[in-house]
Amino acid sequence: MTSIGTGYDLANSIFSPDGRNFQVEYAVKAVENGGTSVGIRCKDGVVLAVEKVITSKLLKPGANKRIATVDKNLGVVYSGMVPDGHHFVDRARDEARGWRETFKTPISTSDLASRMGGYLQAYTLYQSVRPFGITAIIGGFDSELETPVDGEVGSGPSVGAGGKVEGKHGGPGLYMIEPSGMYWGYYGAATGKGRQAAKAELEKLNLSENKLDLMQGIKEAARIIYVAQQDNKDKEFELEMSWISGADGPTKGRHMEVPKDLLEAAERLAKKAISEDDEEDEEDDDEKNDDKMEE
């Protein structure tokens, strides 16, 4: 960074002459050192996964969760500074509650992303604060159900409200918010240390075709976290995964942890997949050696 020491990197509220906010760029650096987070938007729901780096042997396995539930149907995972992430989650919960209070309906994934994007952006404006040292991935499922008629007896009206426009309403949503407050909607999102490898793997899944389902999604998410972790194998980590489906799916519209048996199965497959990759690499090497011998 050429501009270090010029003084333009000391505060949020001052631009550098070439139009950059260095505090925000430093915050991105903090994110790039964090454990990898991944989000996959499947056709029937969303999967969130994170590589939780084990900082001490004295930490209880499975405790200190990194994926948080913000509202019944909304989950958040983040890479970067964990305390900043906790504050982000607190704020997201406040926003979700406030929306429910005002509109008597759960906040949609896109609206939460919009609210939190605005919140993070405000932390890039003032001298007295620093930007968030996290990039957060918000996953949610906006209910496809209708609120029933009060006093409905039995199955209620058979026809229901008239004049609905055909097409899909509600569904899975996935957004990623950066320290600058910028947010986009994604088919697959990755952030943290292993994001490059993770993004490459996500692109191979052709998520825009909307064919991958949740059961495949958790396997892919687990595998991608393991692939992304390959570059620093020395660090111990734990895989944490959550998922959200529609009302007729496995989580019944709620954001929850992936059940232990499914998580372990996905982890086994992931380990197998990366060890096979290693073998293939070795085979390739052998072939090359053979070539050489022929010469």
Binding site: E146, G162, G163, K164
Partner: peptide, 23 residues
């Protein structure tokens, strides 16, 4: 009201301020 997602809907708010969705 009418909206794309839910079609035509009717809600009643009588004197006490309760909210009732009705056909």
């Amino acid at each position: 009201g009418w909206d794309e997602r839910h079609g035509g809907q009717v809600y009643s708010i009588p004197l006490g301020g309760s909210l009732h969705k009705q056909a």
